[in-house]
């Protein structure tokens, strides 16, 4: 992870501030930074989103490709996560470092989305045992500036919301041989049900309290953090402890509660932005990286 070198007094300043619910940048412990979200930024993906959370800059592309269902789940499609922590995000990723972090983040997302109903995988099935849609979710870390997990989860949700999968029909003749036919109308496509797609809220333990949306500096002061994935209804889908420190059980429950609260609010805020953007339709002037 990107290292920020802080001196002891600097750390102390941050810890004390958190204690007083006043963080270095003026936020309270449960306040999020201002995030910029834009979808449909990469035209040749099925869905894409770019999220900018202060310095953290993330680009997610979802590509829907035809594949075969997994043997144990013949009537479902599946998602593949891949996180590319290339060295351009921060020079520290040079060599193996980036790869390890990428694998770690990807595995976290597999866990988060492993819950039965986070995404309706059955809707991704084209015909059982033979064809299904595979959604490749590729995360590109452009600049790494703290709170990666949350930012990525926002970008992933936005990209999935933006994803449009072409509708296909399976033609079957008497013999049972199947042919896949694509629709001629580019607007004729499947959208994913976003109701249960979770967002991740990382709660970093700093001193005796915990903060959400930690900056790089705050992350340097935190020994342990808790990853909580929350659906828009406030249901927890997974919890994961991160970092080398330890947490006492009581504070975990506390953190979960905060996570739920913040997560729900985050869902509402994100959904509002996405809906607004969608209502503009094709007339929307795309900003992308030019803004």
């Amino acid at each position: 992870m990107a290292a920020v070198v802080l001196s002891e007094p600097e750390k102390l300043y941050i810890v004390h501030g958190v204690q007083e619910d006043l963080r270095v940048d003026g936020r309270g412990c449960e306040d999020y930074r201002c995030a910029e979200v834009e979808t449909d930024v990469v035209s040749n993906t099925s869905g894409s989103a770019r999220v900018k959370l202060e310095n953290t800059d993330i680009l997610v592309g979802v590509k829907a490709e035809m594949g075969t269902p997994k043997i144990e789940k013949p009537d479902e499609g599946y998602l593949e996560f891949c996180v590319d922590c290339s060295a351009n995000a921060t020079p520290e990723f040079e060599g193996r470092g980036g790869e390890e972090l990428g694998a770690e983040i990807a595995s976290a997302f597999y866990t988060v989305f492993s819950s039965e109903n986070s995404i309706d995988l059955k809707s991704l099935c084209i015909n059982p045992r033979e064809h299904c849609w595979v959604l490749y979710v590729d995360v590109l870390l452009l600049v790494c500036g703290g709170n990666l997990y949350d930012a990525i989860s926002i970008a992933v949700k936005a990209a999935l919301f933006n994803t449009r999968i072409p509708k296909v029909r399976v033609l079957e003749d008497e013999e049972g041989s199947k042919e896949i036919e694509l629709s001629d109308d580019p607007y004729d496509c499947i959208r994913l049900n976003m109701e249960n797609v979770p967002l991740i809220v990382t709660l970093s333990k700093i001193g005796y309290r915990h903060v959400v949306d930690a900056t790089l500096e705050e992350e340097a002061c935190s020994l342990a953090s808790l990853l909580v994935s929350v659906t828009s209804k406030g249901a927890l889908t997974s919890i994961k402890k991160m970092g080398r420190g330890s947490l006492d059980p009581e504070s975990i429950f506390e953190m979960m509660e905060t996570g739920k609260k913040v997560g729900k609010a985050l869902h509402v805020a994100l959904q509002k932005v996405l809906d607004e953007e969608e209502s503009l339709g094709t007339s929307r002037q795309k900003v992308g990286f030019l803004g």
Partner: peptide, 14 residues
């Protein structure tokens, strides 16, 4: 103006 042409399953943007 971007125009998408859905080929087999890949999305082609020209």
């Amino acid at each position: 103006v971007k125009r998408t042409r859905a080929g087999a399953v890949v999305k082609v943007v020209r």
